[in-house]
Design a protein around this nucleic acid. Structure first.
Lengths: 340, 340
DNA sequence: TTGAAAGCGCTAACAG
DNA sequence: CTGTTAGCGCTTTCAA
């Protein structure tokens, strides 16, 4: 496979000068005569020379690569965040290498190892849902390897993190339900060890309190984040009597699964049950009824995460801190009872 | 940042042997005594040694990286294909570096250059919708750099490609419409230079012919693949009199945009207009009515593309050839008139 | 103003 | 069985 990339050596040979001269000319070193410099740059352009990043990486001990670990690639939420990360990385001359944990602890651990093996300079990570112990990240922190978490986070004291205003968003949802006449407001959460799940539940409970509603364990369900499990959680809620009159789900997956199950049982949204999700703009408007939802600024979340990464890379451990991104409750048909 | 990776040198120093001895022991070279080998491997394990891929890459002239270029990352179709590519790549010990063209010719060209600059060993590409000239790929072919196209392809004679059975799928859709009583079947296509657009139109026309329907230019619309433009194309179709009684759209974006616009105008699906899309399993069942669609084997398409890539990498230019993946027409509510 | 040499981490002849 | 050496492409002292 004739993948013949031109090297400094090639250029030097062709011009009958030394490699170092070529190197200097290409780096605008002042010691080289203007004519020589021009001649060399000219040839480099003709031959389409580009420096070999492997050689540079070896020399400078930096690969210009960032490892990114996400629970999955196919959910719009993550792919959109990745786009944001990629854009900011590109601005800094960095590339990203993506790995999926598939929501699996084991795979996440392996991904960390694999990425480190490739000599990425650091990691930007969203925890898998199974992850409850954090030794694989502790090691990185100990070794001074730049690390940033987004959305599902840990080590907030030591590591820069980006999250949505989960608690506030959940509070807004709950109050929105109340204002639309709902009194039996249910919440389908995920595993408790996930900050997003905990924080949103806090917001839910706070919202209930503000509306002087009494929390009821029969209106709180938990599921792992698979569609199948979310469907079952929804079914359990729908078996309660009296029926809940509102449901909100932790994330996209749950919201859509809930929507399908509610419809399957022949119940009307929002007439019988109002529904709100945490999800993205696009799909919320495709489903019927259009889904009221808290939309994440996903692209921005990616950009922010990458931004924090580069701060960490250049400033070292001088700072950690959490960036909280505001969300917006976009009211559509699925939650407005009086419209119906 | 103390990213201190252990090197062979470190191990050698600690054991008081030469670097090559360590290297050989770690590579199971038969020349090294079993005890020495064991001692070295033991220490390597303790110190958590992993070979530096930059050094290896420099030496062997291979980076174990594949460049992947997609029109965008956030469409499920592409992210799912990427997952497939990633899986197969991983099995071969390769990593993928992803770049988005954002459906833009200029960005695609840059992506090719950038990826080559990083010394990826080759490229797996889905063409951007704007791409009508192929000089940037011709260069690769000329230089013997492995290249594979999927879905939207060119240079089928020289380059391995993976596509869906576009023509057959479109034919099936058309006949399905006919069998459900539709007689004014419309098609919203994309740019003619895209094979997927051309092939699906061929299938559409073939289907019409088989059903003894006469093609009508008023029932054929073209759009660029943006939701906005797809919406306008749909609106144009809906302004025709008599109204079309069926529409199928080139891809996900178009199908969903069409669905929204049809509903917005107060028309019923499938009652007034039957609708079929080329799209994926998941979203087809979330929308209402559930969307009849041709589902692509996206994950498999990714695996296949990667498989072809490795064949190219190892076997060289011995083969090109096109793999055609079968699609399935999954009938749901949006196209079945008599159910209503 | 330019060249020679060392070294980043590794493997593979070539010597011992 | 193990060590020495060269070289992958590059930058950077150190010499000239």
């Amino acid at each position: 496979m004739g993948n013949r990339h031109i090297s400094l050596k090639d250029l030097a040979a062709e011009l009958g000068v030394s490699i170092s001269t070529v190197s200097r000319a290409l780096n605008n070193h002042p010691d080289i005569s203007p004519e020589m410099t021009e001649k060399i740059r000219q040839l480099a352009r003709e031959r389409n020379y580009t420096p070999n990043p492997l050689a540079m990486g070896l020399l400078k001990q930096q690969t210009k690569m960032i490892g990114v670990i996400v629970p999955d690639l196919v959910t719009h939420f993550y792919s959109s965040i990745i786009s944001g990360i990629e854009e900011t990385a590109k601005e800094h001359g960095y590339y990203i290498v993506i790995a999926s944990s598939y929501e699996n602890f084991q795979k996440e651990t392996e991904a960390v190892e694999n990425l480190l093996r490739t000599r990425v300079e650091g990691l930007i990570v969203c925890l898998s849902q199974e992850t409850e112990t954090y030794g694989h990240f502790e090691k990185l922190i100990g070794n001074g390897i730049p690390l940033v978490f987004f959305d599902r986070v840990c080590f907030e004291a030591e590591v820069p993190t980006v999250v949505a205003d989960n608690k506030e968003a959940a509070r807004k949802i709950t109050r929105h339900f109340y204002e639309n006449g709902c009194r039996r407001i249910a919440y389908i959460s995920g595993p408790d060890h996930l900050n997003i799940s905990r924080e949103r539940k806090e917001g839910y409970l706070l919202g209930l309190k503000e509306c002087r509603l009494i929390p009821c364990s029969g209106l709180q369900e938990t599921c792992n984040l698979s569609p199948a499990d979310a469907t079952m959680a929804t079914a359990r809620l729908l078996s309660r009597r009296p029926l809940p009159d509102a449901i909100f789900g932790l994330n996209d997956t749950i919201a859509y699964a809930a929507m399908k199950e509610i419809k399957r049982q022949g119940l009307k949204i929002p007439g019988d049950i109002a529904l709100v999700g945490f999800t993205d703009e696009f799909h919320s408007t495709v489903v019927e009824p259009a889904l009221t939802s808290v939309t994440h600024p996903t692209f921005k979340m990616g950009q922010t995460a990458a931004g924090l990464f580069f701060r960490r890379l250049t400033e070292g451990f001088g700072f950690a801190g959490q960036v909280v991104l505001e969300t917006e409750l976009v009211v559509r048909d699925s939650s407005v009872k009086n419209i119906q």
